[in-house]
Nucleic acid binder design. Structure first.
Lengths: 403, 403
DNA sequence: GAACACTTTATTAATTTTTTAAAAAAGTTT
DNA sequence: AAACTTTTTTAAAAAATTAATAAAGTGTTC
C-alpha cells in the first residue's frame, strides 16, 4: 500500500543513501514534513534495523543532533556498466563500495548475435559466484549504450529481443531490473556523487567510443519525450562529408569519439607521422589502443596530443551550443575518456571561449569527473535507488525482499 | 500569510484562468486535494465574487458537475510586448481578450538613449487613458528582448538603468511588475494557450528580428541557471566568417533572422535579381519591409521565396540540434515571422529530415503557432498569472488589491 | 567558574487540518 | 422502476502540524 508513511519511509532511505548521514531535523526540512512525523518513522526504521544511529552531529550552538545512517551491509545492488565493447558487473553496497571482484565481459554489442543471452548468463554466473547472500541483493541496475525506451524495456540499437529486456533478466535472476542509457546513468552518478553534486543544471559529457550526454535539469535527470534526450553524438556540426554510423553526414561523432581518435592515429602513422605510437598495434584491442595514445600524450608525444586536442576542441564547440541553449551551471567531463580529463581541458576551454558569448560562458564551470571509471557502476546503483518506490522493502533484519 | 488555504485559493484561480471552466472534482484531482477541501474554498471564492457558477457539465453517466469560472471582467492585466523596434501595450481581461485599443510605440531599443523612460511614460499614459478603473488592473507583465535577470530586474542588453527595472516601473504606476525575455514569454503563451498546450516538452522558436527560443520542459518554462537559456540565435553553426552583433562569427542569426532576410533582399535587388521587390524601399520601416517580402513570397515571387526558404532551412538545422539534445514532443514556430508560418514549413521540415536521426525526428511534431501576433501579449498575461502567489488578492467585490 | 541567557534538538500533548467514509442528491441506463 | 454512476454534502476518523515542554549544549557576565 502506498500510504504516506511508506512513501516517507522510502524517501528517508533514499536521502540517507545519497547523503550518508542525516539528522531528524535535516530530514524534516528536506522532506517538508514535521519533526514528529519523521521521528516516528525513524524510530520504526531503527526498530527494523534498516538504519542505525551513528552518534552526534557537531554542535551548532545548541543541543547536538543524533545522526542516522543506513545499515549499509544489509543490502546490495548488482550493477552492470556496459559500453559497446566491454561489460562490467559488480556488487555495490549502500556506500558505493565494490564488494568482491568486478567481472569483465568482452561483449561487442554490434557484432554479437546473442549478446543479450551472454549478458544474462554473465549476470546469473556472477550472482551464483558471489559470497553475498542472494537475498541481500535487492535489485539490478544496468547502463547500456543505445536508444532505450526505459518504460517498455527496449533497446532499439543493441540487444535485440522480442520481449521486455527487464523482464527477461528479471526472470533469469529473480530480481527487479532497471536499465537506462549509459550516458544517462553516468550523469546520475555525477549528479549524486560526482562532479555535478548539488547542481541544478549540469551537462555530463560521456567521452567514450561515442560522445554521449547526460542532461541534469532541476537536479533531475532529463530524459525527454521518449528517453532519447542527450543524443549529442549526432548533432550536425561539420561539413566534412564524413558518413557517420547513423547514416547522416557531419555528426559531432565523426570528429571526436575515441574510435575516431584511434582511427586517425592509425592513419597518421601509416602516412608517416613521427610519433612514439609508430610501432604500436591498433587493430586488436581498442581499450589497449586508447590507453597507448593516452600514454603517448602524457609523455609529451606531439602527434598524440594533437589528436586529443583536436577532438577536445570540437567537443568544445558542441559544448558551447549546450551552454547557449541550456545555460547550465557546470559541464562535467566523464566516462572512459575523462579518466585523463586534463588532457582534454585546455582545448575544450579554448573552444568554449571562442564559440560562446562571454556573459554566458562566464557562468558555466568546466570540470572533470572525480569518479573516473567507477561512474558507470555507481550510476547503475543510483538508478536502482531512484526507483526505490517500485521495490518492496520489507521489515528488515536482513529481510529486505523485493518483489 | 501563506497558509495552505491561501495557496490553494490561488492555485484554483490559476487553474481557472488557464482552463476557463472546471468542476470541483476536476480541481480536486488536479491539485491532489480532497473534495471537501476544494469545496470549502470554492464556496468562499463564490461568496467573494471572484468566481461564478457557469452551469452544469455534460453528464458522464451520473450527477452532473457544477462548473465554475473566473469573474473575468473584475480584473485586468496590463500587457507589454516589446521587440527591438516596436512596443505594444494592451489591457487583457482574464479571458485574454484585448480590452480597448492596443498602443503601439516605435521604440528602437538599441539606439534610443532614454528607452526605459519612454517605456514608463507610455505605460503611465496608457493607464490614464483607459476606460477601465485603475484599481482593476492587478499587475503589469512585460516581455522584452535581451539578457534578462528576472530576479534582479536587470536587462543586460537594453533599457540600461542603475536600478531594478521592475521597481522603477512599479513606482511610476503603483502596480506590481513582472518582466521576462520576449521569447520566454512567447513560449509561456504557447504552452498555456497555443501550439504547445498540454505538451510536456516543447521548443518555441520565436522568429523575429533575431531567432529566439523559449524552452518548455516538464510543462514549465525552463530558464537555466541565470535565466539566459534559449540563446538559440548565437549557437555556432556556420563557417561563413560573418561577424555577428554578439562579436562572434558564424552564429545562427547571421543567416536566419528577419533582419538578415531584409538585408539579403536589398543586396540581391542591388545586384539585379529579378523580383517584384525591385521597386520597393527597404530602408525606412523594417516592419513594412518584411511585410513586403512576405507579400512577394505569397504571390509566388521566386526571389522572396528563396530568401525565406533558405533561412527556414538553416533554422531547421538548428532545430534538429534541439531535437537531438532535448527530444521534445513539438517544435512550435511563433513570433512575428510565424504569422506566415506555412512559408517556412517546407524548408524547415526538409532540413530536419536531412539532419536528424529518423527515429528521433519521427517523434517530434512541427507546428505553427495558432496565436499569431497576440502571443507576446498573452504571454505577458501568463507571466503575471504564473506569479499570482506574489500578488495579494484581497476579498473581492471588485476589490482585488495588489501590493 | 558558576549562574544566566540563548540555541538547537527531542519528546509529548493539544489543536488543526485533511482525508476517508457515509449518505444524500441528481442523472443515466437497462 | 431498479440498478448503477457521478457529484455534492455532512459526519467521523485519521494524520499532521503547532505549540509546549524537556533535554543538552554554547556563550557571556560578574
Amino acid at each position: 500500500m502506498a500510504n504516506s508513511a511508506t512513501i516517507i519511509r522510502k524517501e528517508i532511505i533514499k536521502l540517507l543513501y545519497f547523503n550518508k548521514v542525516l539528522s531528524i531535523s535535516a530530514l524534516s526540512s528536506s522532506l517538508n514534513k514535521s519533526v514528529p512525523v519523521i521521528l516516528k518513522i525513524i524510530n520504526e526504521l531503527v526498530e527494523d534495523e534498516v538504519i542505525i544511529e551513528t552518534g552526534f552531529a557537531p554542535s551548532t550552538g545548541g543541543r547536538r543532533a543524533v545522526m542516522y545512517a543506513l545499515e549499509t551491509r544489509l543490502q546490495y545492488i548488482l550493477c552492470v556498466s556496459m559500453d559497446q565493447f566491454v561489460t562490467n558487473i559488480a556488487l555495490l553496497d549502500l556506500e558505493n563500495n565494490v564488494v568482491g571482484e568486478i567481472d569483465k565481459l568482452h561483449l561487442p554489442l554490434a557484432t554479437t548475435e546473442n549478446a543479450l543471452q551472454i549478458l544474462i548468463d554473465g549476470i546469473v554466473k556472477f550472482i551464483n559466484k558471489t559470497d553475498v547472500q542472494k537475498e541481500k541483493i535487492i535489485a539490478i541496475g544496468i547502463g547500456m549504450p543505445g536508444f532505450i525506451d526505459v518504460k517498455k524495456g527496449i533497446n532499439y540499437s543493441f540487444l535485440q529481443a522480442n520481449a521486455n529486456i527487464n523482464d527477461l533478466i528479471s526472470e533469469a535472476t529473480g530480481k527487479p531490473v532497471f536499465i537506462d542509457n549509459d550516458s544517462s546513468i553516468i550523469a546520475l552518478a555525477e549528479l549524486k556523487f560526482g562532479g555535478a553534486r548539488n547542481k541544478k543544471e549540469a551537462m555530463v559529457v560521456n567521452i567514450g567510443w561515442g560522445v554521449g550526454l547526460g542532461i541534469i535539469l532541476n537536479s533531475k535527470l532529463y530524459r525527454g519525450q521518449n528517453g532519447f534526450a542527450g543524443e549529442f553524438s549526432h548533432i550536425p556540426l561539420f561539413s566534412n562529408n564524413k558518413l557517420c554510423s547513423c547514416g547522416k553526414m557531419g555528426c559531432l561523432e565523426t570528429e571526436t569519439s575515441l574510435l575516431v581518435i584511434i582511427e586517425k592515429a592509425r592513419k597518421g602513422i601509416q602516412e608517416g607521422r613521427i610519433s612514439i605510437l609508430k610501432n604500436k598495434v591498433f587493430d586488436v584491442d581498442l581499450e589497449r589502443a586508447f590507453e597507448q595514445i593516452v600514454l603517448a600524450a602524457k609523455s609529451g608525444d606531439q602527434f598524440a596530443l594533437e589528436l586529443i586536442s583536436k577532438a577536445a576542441f570540437e567537443i568544445g564547440r558542441g559544448v558551447s551550443i549546450l551552454i547557449h541553449i541550456l545555460n547550465p551551471e557546470i559541464i562535467v567531463l566523464s566516462g572512459r575518456g575523462a579518466t585523463v580529463g586534463n588532457l582534454w581541458m585546455a582545448a575544450l576551454q579554448q573552444a568554449v571561449a571562442e564559440y560562446s558569448i562571454p556573459r554566458l560562458a562566464a557562468y558555466t564551470e568546466l570540470a572533470i569527473s572525480p569518479l573516473g571509471q567507477k561512474a558507470g557502476l555507481i550510476g547503475a546503483a543510483v538508478l536502482v535507488m531512484e526507483n526505490l518506490e517500485k521495490l518492496n522493502f520489507k521489515k528488515a533484519k536482513s529481510e529486505i525482499v523485493a518483489e
